[in-house]
Computed example of a mutant assay.
Amino acid sequence: MSLAEILAATENFNPKLLIGEGGFAKVYKGTLESGMKVAVKRSDSSHGQGLREFQTEIMVLSRIQHRHLVSLVGYCDEGLEMILVYEFMEKGTLRDHLYDRKECLQNPSTETEFTWKQRLEICIGSAKGLHYLHTDPDGGIFHHDVKSTNILLDEHYVAKVADFGLSQSGMPDPDHIRMSLKGSFGYLDPEYFRTLQLTNKSDVYSFGVILLEVLCARPPIVNSKQREEINLAEWGMFWQKEGQLEKIIDPLLVGHINRKLAEKVW
């Protein structure tokens, strides 16, 4: 796509259209000439980083298509600009809905759209998207950054896995191991942390952390004086051994979730 198209769609990257920011990129809501709503991810070229991630994302999203993977509409590579244009996801990220709920906690009788059934459907959809990646005929694609901010929701709360900048294609190659950790702390597979060898099991571990987030509505890493509470995965295992899962389940789910089903998710 031309830079002129993107500038028109985002009103010259109007700050009022900024909907996300992180790492070395900003994301804007845009409207193409056709009327299609899009999310425009603009890398910050001043940092001199992101070229590999930019190219990886284009290559991966150009060869895959699935109901539960976000779609790439186009990209722009003019001058110093590295811009990716995706379908717009109306309901934002999974994390937004898990943590932005002050009104619901202050008034438990308040109806919340984000029901237990919706949470399960989001998890199932995300799992289907990851399974599609892992079963790619060319040896699989490992996402490498599975987390609740990379699970996006459309207007019907259909989940789509996003952000493929750290993805790795093909079978693991022991002769070409990355010499630095990539990914997000709290979601990193301990075995990958130890060996730097990425596999599809790394994504599965990260997805398991997301399941705990959905069940407990708390971040994967928190500040705490209690060591076992800092890491969500360790905290969950601690209470599972105690046989008291209800101690850490999201208060908004109390009375709306079957214990056996919660244990199955666990």
Rank of each mutant, 00 (worst) to 15 (best):
A233C: 01
W239P: 05
S2K: 02
R42G: 07
I83F: 01
L188Y: 04
P172Y: 02
I177E: 00
L133Q: 07
L198P: 03
G255P: 12
T195G: 11
I257P: 11
R101Y: 01
S43E: 05
L166Y: 11
L80D: 14
W116I: 00
N14P: 02
E121K: 13
K201V: 11
S45I: 06
A233R: 01
F24V: 07
Y132D: 08
L130D: 09
D203N: 12
D145E: 10
E242D: 05
S71L: 09
I83L: 01
R101T: 08
E90T: 10
T31M: 14
S206I: 14
I249D: 10
C123T: 06
H156N: 15
S224E: 12
G23V: 02
V254W: 11
T31D: 13
T112M: 01
L80V: 06
C104F: 11
R218V: 08
N200K: 15
K91I: 07
G129E: 11
R259Q: 15
I230V: 11
L61C: 11
K16E: 13
I19Q: 09
G48P: 09
A233M: 07
I64W: 08
L32W: 07
R259A: 14
S62F: 09
D138Y: 00
L7C: 11
L211D: 00
F164K: 08
T31E: 15
E242R: 10
I64Y: 10
P219T: 03
E5M: 02
T195S: 15
Q65A: 13
L7D: 12
E113V: 07
N150M: 01
E90K: 09
F185A: 03
Y132P: 12
S62W: 04
D189W: 10
Y75M: 02
L252G: 14
E57G: 13
G79W: 06
Y187V: 04
E246W: 04
K264Q: 15
M1G: 09
A4E: 07
P219Q: 02
D154T: 06
G125I: 12
S180K: 10
V214D: 03
E229Y: 05
D173K: 00
D100F: 03
T135H: 09
E5D: 14
Y75K: 02
Q65D: 08
V158R: 13
P108E: 07
G208L: 12
Y192E: 13
L198Y: 04
Q244Y: 06
I141C: 02
L211T: 03
E229I: 04
R194G: 06
T135G: 07
S45H: 14
S109M: 04
S148A: 10
H176Q: 11
L69K: 11
L17Y: 05
Q118H: 09
L198H: 03
R218Q: 13
L3T: 05
E228A: 05
M89N: 09
Q65H: 13
L17S: 11
G236W: 00
T93G: 08
A262H: 10
